[in-house]
Simulated scan of single mutants.
Amino acid sequence: MTGAALRVRPALAFFDVDETVIAEKSPVAFWRYWQDRHPGRVAADLPDLSSEVAATPDREALNRRYYRRYAGVPLAELEAAGRRWYGEYRRGGTAFVLPMLAAVAEHRAAGRRVVLVSGSMRPLLAALAEELGATLVCTELLVDADGVLTGEVRRPMIGQAKAEAAGRLMREHGADPADCFAYGDHESDLALLRAVGRPVVVGDSPLLKEEAGRFGWPVTPARRGPLEAGHA
């Protein structure tokens, strides 16, 4: 091994997913899909999800309440539905945030590990992570002994949880945080952005743009388009 090779340090690139890599909130988009195709699985007294999202500032509490909607569903059924949903979603003409697809490709070409860090769930994002060649860190669902969802989660991958997960991975890979990247669109991504030396703000969040102006972080527009354009 040459001296130059010995000096190369590993670096990771962390990406929030919803409205950062894909253009929508995956739990909201999938819920519409699930309601349409599994009406017998949806309780009649559930509040409207879009209204609940708009009215609830506490994203961790909202995250927990959302997953309770699937209590009693076999995990295998949800996984199959999630892959079918993504298979349809990925064909949309405005399904992805194009600058982020380009950033994923650039990091992979540079030999950096790409990590998707999301409050969404593995059944929705596993196929996306496979397609992008990324590691997935997300909210993990709890199941009973029969593989049926309890409606509870291990821990919402929201806010500080994202920063802690990124910190663990950087330590495991021997990466200096100063060399690592993070991308996020919402104030709940702020802890993740602060955990690395090269944060990038995606979109128009006033709070994140204020932080970017204070610390000189780059800001990237959340320009939407198809997957194929992002891979071009």
Rank of each mutant, 00 (worst) to 15 (best):
S118I: 04
V137S: 06
E228A: 12
V117R: 02
L6M: 09
D48C: 11
L142H: 11
G92P: 02
A4I: 08
M1H: 13
L116S: 05
P218M: 12
V114M: 07
Q35H: 06
S205K: 01
E19F: 08
T150N: 03
L192K: 06
L136H: 07
C138A: 14
Y183S: 09
T220F: 12
P10N: 12
I158R: 04
A129Q: 03
E131I: 07
D185N: 15
V8A: 14
E211K: 07
C180K: 00
H38P: 04
V117C: 06
Y67A: 07
G184K: 03
L227K: 00
E77Y: 03
H173V: 09
V196G: 01
R155D: 15
Y66S: 03
A55G: 09
L207P: 11
L193C: 05
P177T: 07
T150L: 01
A23Y: 01
V104H: 00
S26L: 04
Y66D: 01
A134K: 00
T139H: 06
L124E: 00
A80I: 10
F15S: 05
L101F: 03
P199W: 00
R198P: 05
A127Y: 03
A134G: 10
L62Q: 04
H38Q: 14
R59D: 05
G225N: 09
S50W: 10
M157I: 11
G159F: 00
S118Q: 08
E24R: 14
A127M: 10
A4L: 14
V42C: 02
A55H: 04
E106P: 08
D146M: 10
E164Y: 13
A134I: 02
T135W: 13
R9D: 09
R64H: 07
A105S: 11
R41L: 12
R7I: 08
D185A: 13
S26R: 02
L193P: 01
I22K: 03
L190D: 01
C138Y: 02
G92Y: 04
G3C: 14
D45K: 06
V104Y: 00
L98E: 03
L192R: 09
R7Y: 13
S51D: 14
G3F: 14
A44L: 12
R171G: 12
R41S: 06
R154M: 10
K209T: 14
L227W: 01
P177H: 11
S50Q: 13
F14Y: 06
V53S: 11
A229R: 13
